[in-house]
């Protein structure tokens, strides 16, 4: 069953188009990976889900509801959480406050989620009282993901969660992503480390210049000689 359907959208920032006839589907409980060269529009595709673009044509559907024109503030309330590529933590707030903000919309007691996040990222528990702006890049990424998880989302959007991380951290983040997914959260993520990411993926999309160039199950994409040559460095 399709949870998120980016249906043939054309749009961008103001009158400048970045995406052209983009079509993506994310099924319930899947991991979907978007890869492609720099500037292809991967981050822009994610922003389209969060009402941050001017969409000229096409629609965005979530759980059968058309959310194309919904305001950014309201989308978080529908059960989608988003970790942007940059500026994704509140630097002047502590780690714990960042996580609390993630649960801003929750009326129930969220201490369960908090201990879950701390279980996923033990580093954060130690640093809970530290300002997020003083953390290392990898730790910030964990805060950002933790913040997104605090809302208990159905769908989690991750924009390059492993960018700039050491191989060790990277493997750790990938395995955490798999854990999150196995507990029932659907994941759509942009990754530069396409090979490793596609291994996890149920489905993948290769974006070039704002258009879908290739799509298919993760394993197939890795095998595809053209994809290999173009994006995966052979």
């Amino acid at each position: 069953m399709t949870l998120l359907h980016i249906d043939n959208i054309t749009g961008g920032y103001g009158s400048v188009h970045i995406l052209y006839d983009l079509e993506m589907k994310v099924g319930q409980q899947e991991i979907v990976v978007i890869a492609g060269p720099n500037g292809a529009g991967k981050s822009t595709a994610m922003k389209s889900v969060f009402g941050m673009l001017t969409i000229e044509r096409g629609t965005v559907n979530f759980g059968g509801q058309d959310i194309t024109t919904h305001r950014t503030e309201h989308i978080a309330g529908l059960g989608i959480a988003y970790v942007p590529q940059v500026n994704n933590v509140f630097q002047s707030l502590t780690v714990e406050e960042n996580l609390e903000m993630g649960a801003y919309l929750r009326k129930d007691d969220f201490s369960g989620s908090l201990s879950q996040v701390f279980a996923l990222f033990p580093d954060l528990k130690k640093k809970r009282a530290q300002l997020a702006g003083t953390l290392s890049g990898g730790q910030r990424q964990m805060v950002a993901m933790g913040r997104a998880l605090m809302s208990g989302p159905q769908l989690l959007l991750l924009d390059e969660p492993t960018a700039g991380l050491s191989p060790k951290y990277m493997t750790q983040i990938f395995s955490i992503i798999r854990d999150i997914n196995s507990e029932g959260t659907t994941i759509m993520m942009v990754e530069q480390h396409a090979k490793q990411a596609l291994k996890l993926a149920d489905n993948g999309y290769i974006l070039v210049a704002g258009r879908n160039r290739h799509e298919g199950p993760g394993k197939e994409l890795i095998e595809d000689p053209e994809v290999q040559k173009m994006f995966l460095g052979g």
Binding site: G77, V89, S92
Partner: peptide, 24 residues
């Protein structure tokens, strides 16, 4: 207070605050 924290968060990063669902 929750509002106070949300205020600091919004002042720090308004866009992130919005997509976190904070009622700006």
């Amino acid at each position: 207070s929750k509002t106070g924290k949300a205020m600091r968060a919004t002042a720090d990063n308004p866009e992130l605050a919005r997509l976190t669902g904070i009622n700006t």
